[in-house]
């Protein structure tokens, strides 16, 4: 397989008075699913179009295996992309859409039928694309992205319009693509969609990277090492824990304990004979981690309008 690493370095682009990209820098490594997350208008789609050589940038580089996209002779064998599942001519049959794309890369009808089967579209392959539901179009777009057996796959909002079955399918597919050693970048404005899918996330806002981290690290940081304690003797528990060096706040009828590990919390409460019904480490969701990161970077928030 070709070198799959995608390196984006200091991309800058201005549309009139809007700064779309403001020093966007990150890399997409092979062998894992990287989430590309940010609010609408953060520059995700512009970045993807810049990587694919569709938009020119004012400054910076986007390289695939060290080469600019536009220098690749058969680019779909290096990078497969789903940008807009609706970008189909309605009168063309789905299979024919893949066929002309295949011909552009010197590939034949056999590969077309392979990706149609992979996307679960074999039975509807000869229907016109105009009759496809949004979910089917997403599958067709993913089939197109995989046509050239590319080392890197870029998917812009691939979960839109998918039914639960489609969601499970794409989850498995993304994991499989990463396990095969491909670099997979999935852009979405809903961080929650990436839970259990991405191993790494690049969070962007206002045209630049806010966080570029492993999902496990991000969750640990957002959790803040807090421990949740449920007890009927809240006052006694708080005093006991504070004597042991913890910072305690009351939240939703439970105690939120900082600066003390869960094991120590249990030990302290046990030693002081304070009854409790639950002690649990607070696990942040990706959504919470994301909200904390982008609070300042959301471009369109109510008050601003």
């Amino acid at each position: 397989m070709n070198d799959a690493t995608i390196t984006v370095t200091d991309l800058r682009k201005r549309y009139g008075r809007t700064l779309a990209l403001d020093g966007m820098t990150f890399a997409v490594a092979p062998g894992r699913v990287t989430g590309f997350v940010g609010p609408n208008g953060a520059g995700k789609s512009t970045t993807l179009r810049a990587i694919l050589g569709l938009d020119t940038v004012d400054a910076g580089t986007a390289l695939i295996g060290g080469r600019p996209y536009r220098s690749l002779p058969r680019p779909l064998t290096h990078v497969g992309a789903l940008l807009d599942a609706g970008a189909l001519q309605p009168s063309r049959r789905a299979r024919d859409h893949l066929l002309w794309l295949a011909h552009s890369q010197g590939l034949g009808a056999r590969r077309v039928d392979e990706v149609l089967a992979l996307a679960g579209l074999t039975d509807v392959a000869r229907r016109r694309a105009g009759g496809y539901s949004l979910g089917m179009r997403q599958r067709l777009g993913i089939a197109a992205a995989l046509l050239g057996d590319p080392a890197a796959v870029l998917l812009d909002e691939p979960f839109n319009g998918l039914d639960p079955e489609g969601f499970v399918w794409i989850r498995g597919l993304l994991a499989q693509l990463a396990a095969e050693g491909r670099a997979v970048l999935v852009s979405t404005h809903l961080m929650g969609e990436l839970q259990g899918i991405a191993q790494h996330v690049v969070v962007v806002g206002r045209g630049r990277v806010l966080a570029d981290a492993g999902v496990a690290d991000l969750l640990a940081a957002a959790g803040g090492g807090r421990v949740l304690v449920r007890t009927t003797a809240a006052t006694d528990a708080a005093h006991a824990l504070e004597r042991a060096g913890a910072a305690v706040t009351v939240r939703d009828g439970a105690l939120s304990v900082a600066d003390l590990a869960a094991e120590r919390v249990v030990a302290v409460l046990g030693a002081e004979r304070v009854p409790f019904s639950e002690v649990a480490e607070h696990r942040a969701t990706l959504e919470e981690a994301y909200m904390a990161l982008t609070r300042d970077a959301v471009e369109y928030w109510g008050a601003a309008l």
Binding site: S71, L76, A81, D84, A87, L88, P90, L101, S104
Partner: peptide
Amino acid sequence: AEYATGMIRTTLAATP
């Protein structure tokens, strides 16, 4: 039609 549907992007991504 290619511009109206946005398919031109697919074309230009396939043949830069």
